[in-house]
Amino acid sequence: MTTLHEKKLAEKKALRQKMLTFRKGLTKEQHEEKSRAILARLYEEPRFQQAKTIFAYASMPDEVQLYDLLAHALKAGKRVGLPLITGKGLMEVVNLPSLDSLVRGKFGILTVREEEQSIIPASEVDFVVVPGAAFSPAGDRLGLGGGYYDRYLAEKAPQAYRAALTFDGQVVPSVPMEAHDARVNLILTETRRIEPNK
C-alpha cells in the first residue's frame, strides 16, 4: 500500500524530471534572451528595489541566468548573499563581497572563495530569489529535491520576501505540495508577473 507521502514523492520526481528536460531543451540563446527579460521585470519590482540584503544563487547553465542580477545588486549598493551548504539539508547565506570573489565550488557551482566567506544573519535577509523546478500560479513550488530552501525559509528566514525567477514553461497548473514545502510570494517569467493571493 503506497502512503500519501510516497505518492507525493513519485509525483514530484516525475514533474521535476519533466521540467529539467524542458530547461535543458532550450538553446543557449533562448536561455540568455529569456533570462534578460525576466531580470528586466525583477529590476522594476519595488520589493526588489527596496531590499537591502538579497539572497540569490549562482545559476547553472540550464537555469535562468543570474550573473547579471548579482552584478546589478552589488552596483546598486545592496548586500548580496549566496547559498553555502553546511550539512545535509542545511545551508547558510554567505556574503558576496564582489564578483571577483567567485570561484568554482562543489558540482561546478560558483561560490565565494573560502577565505572571504562570512555568514549573513538569516534575520537580515529581506529578499530571496528561490530556485525551483516548477511553480504554480498559487505560489506552490517544486524544489530540486534537497529541501535546503524549505528548511532555511521556514526555520531561519520566515520574514524574507520570496521571488521565483523562472521560464514560462515551468509554471504549471498545480504542483504536488507537502506541509514542509515553501511557497513563493512572486513569480516572474519572460512573459508574466504572477502574484499569488492577489
Score class of each variant (00 low, 15 high):
residue 100 D to G: 13
residue 156 K to T: 04
residue 8 K to M: 05
residue 32 E to C: 07
residue 27 T to P: 04
residue 85 I to C: 10
residue 127 F to D: 08
residue 17 Q to V: 03
residue 34 K to Q: 11
residue 59 S to G: 04
residue 47 R to V: 14
residue 21 T to K: 15
residue 170 Q to N: 12
residue 189 T to A: 11
residue 163 A to I: 03
residue 160 A to V: 13
residue 144 L to N: 15
residue 17 Q to D: 11
residue 45 E to P: 09
residue 17 Q to H: 15
residue 137 P to E: 00
residue 182 A to V: 12
residue 139 G to I: 06
residue 75 K to A: 15
residue 45 E to Y: 04
residue 32 E to I: 00
residue 132 G to S: 11
residue 111 T to I: 00
residue 38 I to R: 10
residue 44 E to W: 04
residue 196 P to R: 00
residue 56 A to C: 12
residue 185 N to W: 12
residue 43 Y to G: 07
residue 89 G to P: 10
residue 92 E to M: 00
residue 16 R to I: 07
residue 188 L to G: 02
residue 117 Q to I: 02
residue 61 P to I: 00
residue 161 Y to F: 15
residue 177 M to F: 02
residue 84 L to M: 10
residue 153 L to G: 10
residue 198 K to W: 08
residue 188 L to T: 05
residue 86 T to L: 03
residue 88 K to T: 13
residue 143 G to K: 11
residue 163 A to P: 01
residue 18 K to G: 09
residue 165 L to M: 11
residue 11 E to C: 07
residue 190 E to I: 02
residue 37 A to F: 12
residue 9 L to Y: 07
residue 156 K to L: 13
residue 57 Y to H: 06
residue 49 Q to V: 15
residue 126 D to H: 09
residue 164 A to K: 04
residue 89 G to L: 06
residue 116 E to H: 11
residue 109 I to Q: 02
residue 95 N to Y: 12
